[in-house]
Nucleic acid binder design. Sequence first.
DNA 1: CAGTGGTCTAGACCACCAG
DNA 2: TGGTGGTCTAGACCACTGC
Lengths: 234, 234
Amino acid sequence: MSRAGGIASWQGVQEEVLRRINARIWKPGDPIPNEVDLAAEFGCARATVNRALRELAETGLLERRRKAGTRVALHPVRKAILDIPIIRLEIEGRGHAYGYRLLRTARRPASAAGGAALGMRPGQPTLRIEALHLADGRPFVHEDRWVNLAAVPQIATADLSAISANEWLVRHAPFTRGDFGFEAANADRRIAGLLDTHESAALLIATRTTWNGDQTVTTVRLSFAPGYRMHTTI
Amino acid sequence: MSRAGGIASWQGVQEEVLRRINARIWKPGDPIPNEVDLAAEFGCARATVNRALRELAETGLLERRRKAGTRVALHPVRKAILDIPIIRLEIEGRGHAYGYRLLRTARRPASAAGGAALGMRPGQPTLRIEALHLADGRPFVHEDRWVNLAAVPQIATADLSAISANEWLVRHAPFTRGDFGFEAANADRRIAGLLDTHESAALLIATRTTWNGDQTVTTVRLSFAPGYRMHTTI
DNA sequence: CAGTGGTCTAGACCACCAG
DNA sequence: TGGTGGTCTAGACCACTGC
């Protein structure tokens, strides 16, 4: 089954492997030949095969274990890659004019309950920020954010009416770890008014918390106006 | 600035690069040294540096262009990786007992409007499937699915009351391309009843369409019961 | 223990593209 | 057109783990 010319690029190897999985030449659960044999068959170096297979394993289509070898995944857990851009860029990328309204900022120590929720110790100084992002003048998303001032003291001097906290933090506050969640919630009266919709409208809610080392940087709740759809391709 | 011992693993190189970005030694927008220089500084092979930087570029933290070199991304678009497992495995992974109720199946030609929405040609035979997935006996997610019978004829003979279409398709219907979307919607009366919630409750909706080559395989709308949270880490 | 994948190396050629 | 990243190669050693 070897090819005369050989397959000398990792993309080519990947395509051929995908073709065989697709054609059920290699069925889910089946072991596939080892890297050395595949390299010989394809007429390329083992490293080339390795790169092709490693990527497929990362996407969940193959399962690899030393000594046990490589198998076609029985229950492929597909990975979808979600882009998390700056809100301004997301709006501009959709071809709309970006607008921003800072609703309020407040310094306050983290409450016991709130602090725990944020992963901050009670009493740590926090900055609470509430803002609205607009697309073509219409409400796009409501941002409700807490920033750990111990982790990002410089934000106290930033002009958050000129640049959104979202953008300021992306530019100035590095993080090493983040947690993202998506859920749905009914709009309460206040949010409904801000987003120019009706009470109890279904909203897509995104929550994120980021850490730098073991220190919480910020936690935010984004409430998207009705009609928003998060989207990706695999 | 070179290290006596050297950094001989790509993870080590990546950590050091991240440290410098974090410490603002290399600021957003700044160019960083080229691969040859970094390899010399770290005392490792260029390929090692390449792998470390390539991964960082894939996650959006660096921008790389031939000749122009590598820069710290000015507006890092973070990528979150979302796992899309089989529904049964997701429920079992949460420690709940999995249950499944097939509500109905129906063969019918794709309507003009529906067919277009599915990316199918009108008149192509489709299988409509409606089912409920349960966690510990409670409704977890409602599945409303169309399957292109021209692409997956074998599903007509599957016993979809014993294995969910979700799982059958993952095992038997390969796809080359998929489209995933998330949004929020108010429950209508029927869905509310099925999910054991109240009308107009906010539901997280996931829609997916998959193709094999240029042929639509299936399109599905998943309505998650209130309280569901999709979650990932970066 | 031995076979497999994981990784590093030193060198090479090439594709791209900014200057 | 030259510098940069993108990739391939042949070989090597190592880490893990099934047998």
